[in-house]
Simulated assay, not measured.
Amino acid sequence: MYISKKAKVGSNVKFGYNVIVEDGVTIADNVSIGHNVVIRRDTVIKEGCVIGDNTVLGKEPFKAAISATTEKRELPALIIATNVTVGANCVIYRGAVLKDYVFVGDLASIREDVTVGEYTVIGRGVTIENKTTIGRYVKIETEAYITALSTIEDYCFVAPEVTFTNDNFLGRTEERKRYFKGPTIRKGARIGANATILPGVEIGEDALVAAGAVVTKEIPPRKIYAGVPAKELKDVPAEQLLENQSYYRG
């Protein structure tokens, strides 16, 4: 185990074997760190967090020569707030912020310039690309792919294997870079398994996208869309609206 003399470690912190803690890291009280964890410089881990085995925190992004969304610049430190749980074999980049009570499943990847709101669940194997904002009480389930430049507001549900996209030109022409934009998912919207959401599409509050749908245009609030391409099916039933759920806190 290596813990830098320039790191700050609180009381009752538990370390597994072969942990590396670099310069400037701050670890608050009552944190549990698994085996083979690497905590890169300046990372902040607040009280009560649990970090699973083989996870890397505060990783610097590598920039490919042809990358269109990754910037070479100094990023702020990774911030992991109070009582966050991060599973095994995760990679969370420098410049991300995970707020209180976030849960991150095993094998997840969260890039730089990403904010994840309180009580949100990031499922096993989920990828969240850079410059993305995720609200409170969101559930993103196993193997979903959230592309760069996306927005997911509070209380949204994203089922397994959902794919967000942000490039209508599929990597051709320099002009495409002017139009990069991920989807925007408004408060309380739900997306079914294996759905694909095209670049820049907005899904309205409390709308529902059926499993396997391909969403090519804006979806109004409180509507159900299904099919390829997705078309309006009916209204979301009143008993399913977010405002009528016992767990909804506004």
Rank of each mutant, 00 (worst) to 15 (best):
D23T: 06
Y145W: 13
I51W: 07
L107Y: 13
I27S: 03
A213T: 09
D53N: 14
P199S: 08
N166D: 04
K46Y: 02
I197Y: 02
P237C: 05
P237W: 04
I128H: 01
I191W: 08
Y119Q: 00
T115A: 01
K139M: 11
E175P: 04
R249H: 07
V236L: 07
N12V: 05
I80G: 04
A77H: 11
V236I: 13
D100A: 09
T184F: 01
E141F: 06
I20C: 14
S32L: 03
V44L: 14
V158Q: 01
E141R: 11
A226D: 12
E74D: 15
F169T: 12
V91G: 08
T132N: 01
A77S: 12
I128F: 06
A148K: 10
D23E: 15
N36H: 08
K139R: 15
G227S: 07
A96R: 06
G10L: 03
R136W: 02
I39E: 03
K181Y: 00
F62N: 13
N244K: 14
D106L: 07
E218H: 15
Y248F: 14
I51D: 07
P221M: 06
R136L: 02
V37H: 02
F62P: 12
E243I: 07
I80A: 04
G117A: 03
A68D: 14
R186Y: 07
N30K: 11
E243K: 04
L149T: 09
K231A: 13
Y93F: 14
E153I: 14
R176S: 12
L75M: 14
G182A: 10
R222M: 06
E112V: 12
S4W: 04
I203A: 01
T151C: 12
T142K: 13
V9L: 02
G204E: 01
I128M: 10
I27F: 08
T26Q: 09
I27R: 03
N54A: 09
V116D: 00
E174F: 11
P220T: 08
K234P: 15
T70R: 04
D113A: 07
I185K: 09
E243C: 01
F15P: 12
I110P: 00
C156M: 07
K131G: 02
V215R: 00
